[in-house]
Nucleic acid binder design. Structure first.
Length: 575
DNA sequence: GCCGTTTTCGGCCCGACTGTTTTCAGTCG
C-alpha cells in the first residue's frame, strides 16, 4: 500500500513549487517541480504502474526520489524543511494580482508579514510603501485586492462570458480602424471555463482603437493600458469578465493568433522546435537567428507548415503530444460535418418555439435531419407529454415532414429514468418513436449503485437510443449524480447506446476527458444542443469544440451521419 | 531541478506593461 494517492503526490509537488517561489528560489528550479507535477498528471498510469517516475520527461533523479518518499511515507524532507521555514499563510498571497514570489518574500523578510491579515494591517499603517520596489500605488492596490479577495471566482464557466463575447464581437465589428480580429485564448481552445477573454486585433491605428475600447459601455475597470496591449474588466450584472486586447500590424496576425491561442505549454513546445531549427518564435513572426530576418505568415496553417506540421486544431493544443499526433487530426469532427441536432424542446413541453419553427431553424443551419425530443410526462414542471399528447405531437411531426423532400424530422422524446429505476413510458409507446433519449432529472443524491442501476436499465432497453447529459453536472455549480462513468461507457458499448455531449455551456456533459474515453471504448457519441429556444441552437459550436478536445473522429459522432445511416445503425443495435 | 544529434555546463519561450526607477525588476500571459 502507498501512503498517499497520486493526486496528493501531484499536489505536494505543486506545494513545493509554491514554497520555493516564495523563498525566492531560481525560477527554473520552481518550474521544474511544476513541470514534474504536470508530467505526472498527464501520464495515465497509476503510481503502482509507474515504477520509475524518472522515465517521464521533466522528472529527473531528484524529483523521482521525492515522489518515492511521498509515496512511501506521505512526506519528504524538502517539503518538511520548507514548511518549517515559510509560514503557510503566505501561500494564498500568491493569488493576488501583482504579487509574486519575490515581493512576498520581501514582505515576509522585511516586515515579518505571515498572513493576509498581517499584510492588510501593514498596508493600513503605510509600512509597505517604504520597501524598495514598492510604492504608495502598489500599497493601495494590494489593499484593494485584499478587500476583494475571494469575492470573485478564479475561472468563469463559458456560459458566463457569452454575453460579453457577443457584445465585444459587435463592438469590434463597428470600429472602422480594425482590419480584422479574433477571439483567441482558452475560449478558442474550447475549454469549459475561462479566466479571461483574449482578443487579437489587426490595425494600423492602435491608439484610436484603444480609445474606442476604453470607452465601451460595460467597462468597469482599466487594469492596464499601453500602446498595443489593453486589459479591461467588463461588468455584466454580478459577473466581472476580464478582457485582454492585443493590437498588431496585419503581417503579424497569424503568429499573434497562434501565440494568444496558446496553451502556454503548446507555445513552449513550438518554440523549442523553432530553436532546434535556429529560429525564434515571437508574437510578431519567426526570426531566423543567423540573419535576423523576420518571417511572416498569411495564416496559422502556413505558420505550422513552416515547421513541417499540418495545422493543429486549437482544441488539442495542450502542450502534450499534439506535435507528434498532428497527422492524426485530419478526420477530427468539425462544425461543418454536423448534419443534425438530436435533442431539443418545443412549446409542447418547456421550449419557446413551435415544432415548425425549430424545424425551419435547423434547416436554415444547413442540417439534413433533426429530432424533436420534448420532456416526458414525469417532468411535470416542464409540462412533460402525457401518452396522449405524445401521440398527437408525433402525428403532427409526421404530417410536417411530408412537406420536405430534403430534410427528415425524427419523432423523439427525452424520457426520464425515474427514481425507482423504471422508465417513463411503456414499451408499446416507445416502439413507435424514432429517437428515444433517456435521462436523469431527479433524485441526484442516490448512492452510486442505485444511479448505475437506473442508467443500466435505460441502456438495456432496445428502444433507448441515447443517454443525455450522462453525468448531470453543471459546470462550477453542481457535480452531478454519483455515476461510475467507466462502467456506463462499458455498458453503452455493450448495448449500442449513444452517449451525449450536451452542448449547453452550463453542462458540456460528457466532458472532453470522458468523451475521449468513450470513443476509445468504441462508444458512439452525439453532440446536441438541448435547445429550449432558437439561440440555443448556436451552442452546437461549443459542443463540437468539446468533441474536438476529446479528439473525436467524425465517424464516431452519429449526428455527422445521414438520417438513413443513423436509422440503420439504431435498428442494428436493437436487441 | 532538468536536459543533451553543439551533452555533464549553461541554458531553460518571449515580450508588454507597471511602478519603481532613472535603466530595470517583477509580474503576467
Amino acid at each position: 500500500m502507498t501512503a498517499i494517492d497520486k493526486k496528493s503526490v501531484i499536489q505536494e509537488l505543486e506545494r513545493i513549487a509554491v514554497y520555493l517561489e516564495i523563498k525566492g528560489e531560481n525560477a527554473f528550479r520552481v518550474s521544474a517541480y511544476r513541470k514534474a507535477a504536470q508530467a505526472l498528471e498527464q501520464d495515465e498510469r497509476s503510481l503502482a504502474e509507474l515504477e520509475d517516475p524518472s522515465v517521464l520527461n521533466g522528472v529527473g533523479k531528484g524529483t523521482a526520489g521525492i515522489i518515492d518518499d511521498l509515496v512511501k511515507t506521505g512526506s519528504t524532507e524538502l517539503l518538511d524543511q520548507l514548511k518549517a521555514e515559510i509560514p503557510e499563510g503566505l501561500i494564498p498571497l500568491l493569488k493576488l494580482p501583482g504579487l509574486g514570489g519575490k515581493k512576498i518574500g520581501k514582505l515576509y523578510q522585511e516586515l515579518n508579514i505571515t498572513s493576509a491579515a498581517d499584510l492588510k494591517k501593514a498596508c493600513e499603517e503605510k509600512q509597505v510603501r517604504d520597501l524598495s520596489g514598492f510604492g504608495a500605488k502598489t500599497e493601495e492596490k494590494i489593499y484593494q485586492e485584499l478587500e476583494d479577495m475571494g469575492k470573485r471566482p478564479e475561472r468563469l464557466p463559458v456560459s458566463a462570458v457569452l454575453p460579453a463575447v457577443a457584445d465585444l464581437n459587435s463592438a469590434l465589428d463597428a470600429i472602422e480602424e480594425v482590419d480584422r480580429f479574433e477571439l483567441a485564448g482558452s475560449f478558442r481552445r474550447g475549454r469549459e471555463t475561462v479566466k479571461d477573454l483574449d482578443y487579437i486585433i489587426s490595425t494600423e491605428y492602435p491608439g484610436e482603437v484603444g480609445e474606442r475600447l476604453l470607452s465601451m459601455e460595460k467597462v468597469s475597470a482599466v487594469i492596464s493600458s499601453g500602446k498595443t496591449k489593453i486589459s479591461l474588466e467588463l461588468q455584466y450584472d454580478d459577473v466581472i469578465v476580464p478582457v485582454d486586447f492585443r493590437m498588431v500590424q496585419d503581417e503579424s496576425f497569424a503568429t499573434i493568433l497562434h501565440h494568444f491561442t496558446g496553451s502556454k505549454d503548446h507555445n513552449v513546445l513550438m518554440r523549442q522546435r523553432a530553436k532546434n531549427n535556429g529560429e525564434k518564435i515571437s508574437e510578431y513572426g519567426v526570426e531566423i537567428e543567423a540573419t535576423g530576418e523576420m518571417l511572416h505568415f498569411a495564416s496559422e496553417a502556413e505558420f505550422f507548415s513552416h515547421f513541417d506540421l499540418p495545422w493543429i486544431p486549437p482544441e488539442v493544443r495542450n502542450g502534450t503530444t499534439e506535435l507528434e499526433e498532428a497527422e492524426t487530426y485530419v478526420d477530427l469532427v468539425s462544425i461543418n460535418d454536423i448534419q443534425a441536432d438530436l435533442h431539443m424542446h418545443t412549446t409542447w413541453s418547456d421550449g419557446a418555439q413551435s415544432i415548425e419553427e425549430m424545424v425551419e431553424a435547423c434547416r436554415n443551419r444547413g442540417y439534413s435531419f433533426m429530432a424533436i425530443t420534448d420532456h416526458g410526462k414525469f417532468l411535470k414542471v416542464a409540462n412533460g407529454l402525457s401518452d396522449e399528447r405524445l401521440q398527437r405531437q408525433h402525428e403532427e411531426i409526421r404530417q410536417l415532414r411530408t412537406a420536405y423532400d430534403d430534410f427528415d424530422v425524427f419523432t423523439g422524446i427525452e424520457m426520464d429514468i425515474l427514481p425507482d429505476g423504471t422508465l417513463d413510458y411503456a414499451d408499446d409507446v416507445l416502439k413507435n418513436i424514432d429517437f428515444v433519449i433517456a435521462s436523469i432529472h431527479s433524485s441526484f443524491n442516490q448512492d452510486e449503485n442505485t444511479i448505475m442501476a437506473r442508467l443500466e436499465t435505460a441502456c438495456n432497453h432496445p428502444q433507448v437510443a441515447m443517454i443525455a447529459h450522462p453525468t448531470g453536472r453543471l459546470i462550477e455549480k453542481r457535480p452531478g449524480y454519483r455515476v461510475d462513468v467507466d462502467r456506463l461507457i462499458q455498458k453503452a458499448y455493450e448495448t449500442g447506446t449513444i452517449l451525449e455531449i450536451n452542448a449547453n455551456p452550463n453542462r458540456l456533459d460528457l466532458s472532453a476527458a470522458w468523451a475521449e474515453k468513450a470513443q476509445a471504448a468504441g462508444v458512439k457519441i452525439a453532440v446536441n444542443t438541448d435547445a429550449h429556444r432558437y439561440e440555443m441552437l448556436d451552442h452546437m459550436e461549443l459542443g463540437v469544440k468539446t468533441a474536438r478536445r476529446a479528439k473525436l473522429k467524425k465517424e464516431n459522432v452519429v449526428n455527422t451521419w445521414t438520417a438513413a445511416q443513423l436509422k440503420a445503425w439504431l435498428t442494428s443495435t436493437d436487441e
